[in-house]
C-alpha cells in the first residue's frame, strides 16, 4: 500500500516537474513562434504573390514566381556564383585553418599573443573588414598594389574588385581571411586532445613528420573536420554582408550570390513576392545540408 502511494506521489511530482518545464520553455516557444515560425510560413505564402514593395500591395499569382525564376538565367548564374564562392572560400579556409592550427600547436614564441592575432579577423565586424580591405585594394594609394609592384609581381595596378575574375578571387580571399580562424580554433582544440603516445609510438616505428601527419593527425581530425566543413558550408553559402559590401554583386552580376539576389529583388527591383520565391528556393537548396548536419549532431548526442 505504502509502495503504491509512494509511486503515486512520484508520478505527481513528475507531472508537476514537467509542468514547470513547460512553464520555463514557454517564453522561448512564444518568441520562436512570433519571430521565426510565423515569418517562415509567411515567407512561403508571400512567394505566391506579386507584391510591389513600396505600397505592399499584392495579387495572387500562385506558383508563377517559381516558374519565372527557374526559367530566368539570373537564378542560375547566381546559383553558380554562390557555389563558386562557397567552394572557393571554404577550401581556402580549411587549408589555411588546418595549416595554421598545426603551426600554433607547436611551442612557438608568444603563442597566446599569436593566437589572439589570428583570432581577431573572425570577431571584427564585416563592415570593418570590408573597409580595411577596400583601402588595401585601393587602385591609387592601396598598399597591396604598391607591394606587388615593388616585388615585381605586376607592372600595373590591379583592379581588384571592378573586373572579373579578380572580383570573385578577391571576395573569396577576403572571406577566407575573415573566417579561417574558426577552423583554426576548432582544429586546435582537437589537436590538443590527441594522445602523445600515438606520436611516440610512430616515432619509434621510424615514421617521419609527414608520415605522422597522414597516419595519425589527419585520421584523428577527420571527425571534427567533417563537422567544420558542414557548418562552414552552410554559413558561407548564406553569406550576405561580406559580398554585398565588397562588390555589391558586381561587376554587373558576376559576384551576385543568391542572398544578394533576394535583397536586390526585394529592395531595388521592389518585387517582394519574387524575392520571397528566391529565398524559399535558396532555403530548399540548403535544406539538404542542414538536415544532414542536424541528424549527425543529434546522433552524436544520443
Amino acid at each position: 500500500m505504502r509502495h503504491i502511494m509512494a509511486k503515486q506521489q512520484q508520478t505527481l511530482l513528475e507531472r508537476r516537474y514537467s509542468m514547470l518545464g513547460l512553464f520555463l520553455i514557454a517564453p522561448t516557444v512564444l518568441v520562436f513562434c512570433a519571430v521565426i515560425v510565423y515569418p517562415l510560413i509567411s515567407a512561403v505564402y508571400l512567394s505566391l504573390f506579386k507584391i510591389f514593395t513600396p505600397t505592399l500591395e499584392g495579387s495572387w499569382v500562385g506558383l508563377d514566381n517559381y516558374r519565372v525564376l527557374l526559367s530566368k538565367g539570373e537564378f542560375w548564374t547566381s546559383l553558380r556564383a554562390n557555389l563558386i564562392w562557397t567552394v572557393g572560400t571554404l577550401s581556402l579556409q580549411i587549408i589555411f585553418g588546418v595549416g595554421m592550427a598545426l603551426v600554433l600547436h607547436q611551442n612557438i614564441w608568444f603563442r597566446s599573443l599569436a593566437r589572439s592575432l589570428i583570432l581577431f579577423p573572425y570577431f571584427i565586424s564585416t563592415v570593418v573588414a570590408v573597409l580595411v580591405w577596400k583601402w588595401l585594394f585601393n587602385d591609387l594609394y592601396g598598399i597591396l598594389n604598391h607591394l606587388m609592384i615593388t616585388a615585381g609581381l605586376i607592372d600595373w595596378p590591379i583592379d581588384y574588385l571592378g573586373s572579373m575574375p579578380n572580383a570573385m578571387i578577391s571576395v573569396i580571399l577576403v572571406g577566407a581571411w575573415k573566417y579561417f580562424p574558426f577552423v583554426v580554433i576548432a582544429v586546435l582544440a582537437r589537436l590538443q586532445s590527441i594522445p602523445d603516445q600515438l606520436y611516440e609510438a610512430a616515432k619509434i616505428d621510424g615514421a617521419g613528420p609527414i608520415a605522422r601527419f597522414f597516419d595519425i593527425t589527419l585520421p584523428q581530425l577527420r571527425e571534427v573536420l567533417v563537422v567544420i566543413i558542414m557548418l562552414r558550408a552552410i554559413w558561407d553559402f548564406k553569406e550576405f554582408d561580406l559580398i554585398f559590401l565588397l562588390t555589391g554583386g558586381g561587376p554587373v552580376t558576376s559576384t551576385q550570390t543568391l542572398p544578394l539576389l533576394v535583397y536586390k529583388e526585394a529592395f531595388a527591383l521592389n518585387q517582394m513576392g519574387m524575392a520571397s520565391a528566391y529565398a524559399v528556393i535558396m532555403m530548399l537548396i540548403m535544406l539538404g545540408f542542414m538536415l544532414v548536419y542536424i541528424r549527425r549532431t543529434r546522433s552524436e548526442e544520443s
Binding site: 519571430v35 517562415l40 509567411s42 515567407a43 548564406k238 543568391l258 542572398p259 533576394v262 526585394a266
Partner: peptide, 9 residues
C-alpha cells in the same frame, strides 16, 4: 537558417 528568408516577412 539564412536570415534572408526571414527578413522579408
Amino acid at each position: 537558417l539564412p536570415s534572408v528568408v526571414l527578413i522579408l516577412p
